[in-house]
Amino acid sequence: MVARERFAWIDLIGMILAYGFFFIAFLQSERTPLTLVILFAIATAIRLAIIAGGLLTLSAEGRAELWGKPDERDRAVTRRSGPAAYYVLLLAMIAIVFMAFYCDGITVATAGLAGLVAADIVRSAATVAGYRWGWRD
């Protein structure tokens, strides 16, 4: 498995674990703005720690290509995963605009974060799928 694919898996799993924790913990809390900020900061720190651990592991394994120039397949995978995430983000933002008229601020903020996280998960999942199963134009 190419180092960039392994890193994409690490990124995807890290995101699901970190923000899964965030949404479960937040929905079970009192749902105050301060709780939202603190839990999101913790989740982001968890995600960064997982990414750092992944990078250290790949570096320790001598996977130098991770730091090198991406080849044409790497660039194609990256190019194709972006639009999928864009449409998720677009739908999320439209939903949030309408939610702003009917919901309280904390719900709108949570939905906004959910939209961002969903778009990033889709981007990362599309990257993994691109490496694993490929695309035929």
């Binding site: 694919e5 790497d74 490929g134 695309w135």
Partner: peptide, 12 residues
């Protein structure tokens, strides 16, 4: 890995 993907028809 890119050569392998080309050989397997996973990447054009």
């Amino acid at each position: 890995q890119t050569v392998a993907a080309i050989e397997q028809g996973k990447y054009s």
